[in-house]
Amino acid sequence: MVKFFETSFTYDYSFPAVTLAYFLRYPNPYSTHVLSTDVISRTVDPSSGRLHTLRVHRKSSRLPPAVLKLLPKSVLGSVRGGRSESYILESSTIDIKEGWMKTESKNLDWTGILSVVEKQEYRRNVPANESDDFKVDTGTTGVVTTVIFKSRLGDRLRARATRKGEAALGEGDDEPPKRSLLASWSTIGIQRSIEAIASRKTENQLGNSKQGMTIVLERLRSGGLVGVLDGMRRDSQGVLKSG
């Protein structure tokens, strides 16, 4: 089962500034839940000049209580319940000549319950002008964000039920297949609910991530790179205080 969500937005900042803000977007006041960011790999393709980056973000998060309520105990047993951190894998490719950046983020844990994949495509809206392209306030940058939710919980439970059903059929008993049919109906319900809750939560978070980017871009405009780094220092102190 899959749920799909798409939104587009335009930043009133140049493409180079937006890509820089993307790398520098954590910490910011709207992302206090992001605890750390690490670079796993980073390469420049010698022929295309594209920059490929792979990063891992650590976020403090719990499954929403509404989701926890829906999960059967058998599934929760395999999940470390008190766990309050999760990891996000983010890959990005930037082509500065063609003026685009493509990113993809997905959760590394909890994937047995829900996998969320967020893809973004940033595009330079104004043709490159070599003399003033890097000025942060010239040109605009469009971004299209798509988020795909997939709850695989039911797939797993169904697979288990089917296996049980097949085994029972071999013994000449035809009751278990009926039970597995009921089991699959109820897990479809759970999947739909998990996806609906996750989708509502994501709509809020997408707003927050936009505001976070805008703050970083504003700091870039008013204080350059130093302004961004000063702001980050203040924000990370804030995280430490609140944590």
């Binding site: 180079p16 992001v34 605890l35 750390s36 960011t37 690490d38 670079v39």
Partner: peptide, 30 residues
Amino acid sequence: MSASLAPECNEVKERYDSCFLKWYSEKYLR
């Protein structure tokens, strides 16, 4: 600068991050 998930790597990370940001903003973007 954002922290590393491993506090013991913060120092080497910050040195790398500073280098990258300088290279990215002064060279790559140009």
